[in-house]
């Protein structure tokens, strides 16, 4: 049996099918045509669709996003590929003031996908920022954070058929992850969390790469007789707060984990909203696990000390299970 596709191949599959369906979709970014992107996310796509629809750009982030905004307003469906999410900082005005705010004022839509690889891995402070909360915070933007090949393809298809600017964040450490993917019409809706693991004793809410250490922590606790439910948010805006609140009501114990600095983070939003909505169902405080509020070091030991470990997640779960 042929092996299952990788997370990057899932993206290729989704973009290829949608480009075949819709001639208005095109991609632009750096190093896309020959290299196929820094994560092989569009490998072979230029050879299939040509240089007009897979455009190599100069390293001009502001112009790349501006080109996407203007072309989207004109009626095209651009995908701007920044390779690394950190590079969005060179185009924050184009993303926040322009892409996100145009629909509200100017009687038009901006169907623009901004894809980038994100998350914590290696190479230090300039390639390992966690901007999830920036983007989810901004009115007008939607944010996808797929944690599996299936969701990469399905969420991408949904985004390419909608009419809004979408920040599509793919985690570095999932690039080579293999798993099943859906067919041409297997769309994954935004705003619908997935139960990645069932369990009645506590709920762990997370997304993206953190699903993997979360799953390992849950297995450790299972060996100790406690079953932890894991919710994969899949998108951060819209966010499936209904699923989070239902989970609080179901298990009464909640841990929220990601690898962004804890202060003013997505985990804070989830804990606050769930506490407001379902305080009476909680057996004790929701516990958040995240990174220290430090730039990311290039040293592997420093990285480990900055972001949550499996044992940090286990400790948080043990704490809520002790209520």
């Amino acid at each position: 049996m042929a092996s299952e596709p990788t997370y990057s191949e899932a993206y290729q599959s989704g973009i290829r099918e949608e480009m075949n369906n819709n001639p208005k979709i095109f991609i632009m970014g750096t190093d896309l045509q020959e290299r196929g992107g820094h994560f092989a996310q569009v490998k072979g796509i230029a050879q299939e669709f040509g240089g007009e629809r897979v455009r190599d750009t100069p390293i001009s982030e502001a112009a790349m996003i501006a080109a996407g905004v203007g072309a989207a307003m004109y009626g095209m469906r651009p995908v701007v590929d920044l390779n690394f999410m950190d590079f969005a900082l060179g185009a924050m005005d184009e993303i926040i003031n322009q892409a996100a705010h145009i629909r509200y004022m100017f009687n038009g839509s901006v169907p623009l996908i901004i894809r980038a690889t994100s998350g914590i891995a290696q190479a230090g402070a300039h390639h390992n920022n966690s901007f999830e909360s920036f983007f989810a915070h901004t009115p007008g933007l939607s944010v996808a954070v797929p944690g599996t090949p299936w969701d990469v393809k399905g969420l991408l298809k949904t985004a390419l058929r909608a009419d809004d600017p979408v920040i599509f964040m793919m985690h570095k450490k999932l690039t080579g992850m293999r798993g099943p993917i859906g067919g041409p019409e297997d769309l994954v809706p935004f705003g619908k969390a997935r139960i990645a693991r069932e369990g009645a004793d506590a709920t762990l809410v997370t997304y993206g790469y953190t699903l993997i250490p979360a799953m390992k922590a849950a297995e450790t606790l299972a060996a100790e007789g406690k079953q932890v439910e894991i919710l994969d948010l899949r998108t951060l805006f819209p966010m499936d707060m209904d699923a989070v609140i239902e989970a609080v009501k179901r298990t009464g114990r909640m841990v929220v984990v990601d690898e962004a600095p804890l202060f003013a983070s997505i985990t804070a939003e989830i804990a606050a909203t769930a506490s407001e909505a379902a305080f009476d169902s909680l057996k004790g405080p929701i516990v958040r696990v995240g990174a220290q509020r430090a730039p990311l070091s290039a040293d592997p030991g420093m990285v480990e000390a900055t972001i949550p470990s499996i044992s940090d997640i286990e400790a948080a779960l043990r704490k809520v299970l002790s209520y």
């Binding site: 007009e52 112009a63 080109a67 072309a71 004109y74």
Partner: peptide, 13 residues
């Protein structure tokens, strides 16, 4: 910049 993007849209269309 947005005008430049519109011009790209025009060309591609």
């Amino acid at each position: 910049g947005i005008g430049m993007g519109a011009a790209l849209g025009i060309k591609l269309a």
